[in-house]
Simulated scan of single mutants.
Amino acid sequence: MKRCDFVDWMKAVGMFLIVFGHFFGDPFDQFTQPVYPKQLGVAMFVFIMGWGLGKVTTKRYQISYNRLFPMFFWGIVIALFISVISFFVINDISESNYAPFVFGINVIFNFFPANPTTWFIGTYFHIILLWAIILYRINVTPFILCLSLGIEIFIRGYFIYDHSTFIAYMTLPNWLTVFLLGMYMCQQKDQDSSKGFFVGIIAWVVFLFLWALVLNEINVTRRFPFKNIQVSSDLINAVYTSIAVSFVYISNTLFSIAVFSRVKAGRIVRFFSRNTIIVFIGHMPLYFVIEPIVNLVFASGWPKRLCIVLIMYIGLSWVSEILCKAIKVDEIKKWGWGKLIHWVPILGK
């Protein structure tokens, strides 16, 4: 199989945006309003999910299992580790961290789990489940993309209007069009080219600055996980905000594809790409551990933030590399699949 370098680039850069976005706010937030920069990293991951599943039509249960297993395995390991530490430190097992593993039930609650990044595991499960049941047999067309976009904007807008912004962010419709866009582009004919790389970067940068100029002229309140565009009634504001969210997700994802599909991914990029799961799930718990230590050197400001980002992106990637070599997750995954199809033979068909 041909290796697609842009996949590694989007995973590595997407993970960096998530880590960076958790600890650097202004002036960077203005370029992605009404979402935050870290959410573009999640959009890149969801696009890659769709692209990876775009042409798959057989063995969907096994492929779904293979996708879910490492996310669930490391997610549960880290959740257990947090529970042990929390029990001895604050006499609390942080039980909300386990909600994503119960059929992704966390997405119906208007708050994040104790480990904030754990929310994505529930959404990830729902995306894979929807693909395995329905989407695997669909040839994505521009019409389907437009239909998805309309559904996405409507449902997200409803939850924003209902002041359930965490639900609006975590539920599957918030990410549906980006996922289908990945499937759609996978199902098209490849057009590999190294030309236009610098043009793509310049265009992306110009777009970000123009978007900031436009949104900075509008009253956008600083809320989370979405900022809120304030121009009219609550209903109109929710609709405008939802439209803007989809626009930012899709446009920046397309720019990232235009750039990263024109440059090779070397060993360093692939290193960060293959270690994204543990970094994604573990970087926020690690922050609470290392932040007091970093305070001894940098009390505040950008040097402190940069130090934390480097530790959690580079340092935690090395920890992930060591853990993945020490713990043979693929072998455990294969053993589990063998047991599963023995109990439920239909899954092997």
Rank of each mutant, 00 (worst) to 15 (best):
F111T: 14
I78S: 02
L147I: 06
I63C: 03
F81I: 14
F255H: 02
G282H: 10
V140R: 06
V297K: 11
S193L: 13
I308E: 13
H126V: 02
Q30K: 15
K333P: 00
V329S: 08
R3T: 15
S193F: 10
W318A: 00
G200I: 13
V294H: 11
F6L: 07
V245C: 12
I138V: 15
F224H: 09
I236Q: 03
P113D: 02
V205D: 05
F143I: 13
G266Q: 06
L180Y: 00
L316E: 10
L286R: 03
H283V: 09
G282R: 08
Y61C: 01
V309T: 15
L17H: 04
S164V: 03
G282K: 10
I76M: 14
F101L: 03
M183P: 10
D92A: 01
S256G: 09
T58K: 12
T57C: 10
S148P: 08
V289H: 03
C324D: 01
Y287R: 11
S246T: 03
L17R: 04
H163W: 07
Y313A: 05
N97L: 08
P100N: 09
N106V: 01
A168Y: 04
F298S: 01
I278A: 01
I218M: 15
V46F: 05
R137M: 07
C186H: 15
L181C: 00
P142K: 05
F23W: 05
D5L: 05
L129D: 11
N295I: 02
F224A: 13
G104Y: 12
Q39I: 10
W119R: 00
V231E: 11
W335K: 12
I311C: 13
L340W: 07
A168L: 06
L340Y: 00
K334L: 12
K334M: 12
F197P: 05
F72P: 01
R267M: 12
G41I: 03
L149H: 09
D8V: 02
I155Y: 06
R274A: 10
F31Y: 15
G75E: 12
V206F: 13
G157S: 14
V84A: 08
P34M: 08
H22G: 09
N139I: 14
N295C: 02
L40D: 02
I281G: 00
F88M: 08
V245Q: 04
F288G: 14
F209M: 11
A132W: 08
K227A: 11
N237D: 15
Q62M: 13
G196Y: 02
N275Q: 15
G157K: 04
W74Q: 07
D234I: 00
D192N: 11
P225H: 09
I257N: 06
N216I: 01
V259G: 01
C146T: 13
V205I: 15
N237S: 09
I202P: 05
V344W: 07
F198Y: 14
K55H: 07
I341G: 04
F20N: 05
V259D: 01
P34Q: 06
C307S: 15
A238P: 03
V214M: 04
F20T: 02
F298M: 01
S148F: 07
F159W: 10
D5V: 08
Y136V: 07
W335L: 14
I76F: 12
L340H: 07
K339H: 10
I85N: 03
V309K: 15
T253S: 07
V245K: 06
L176P: 00
I121G: 14
I268Y: 04
M284S: 05
W337T: 00
L215V: 04
N66T: 04
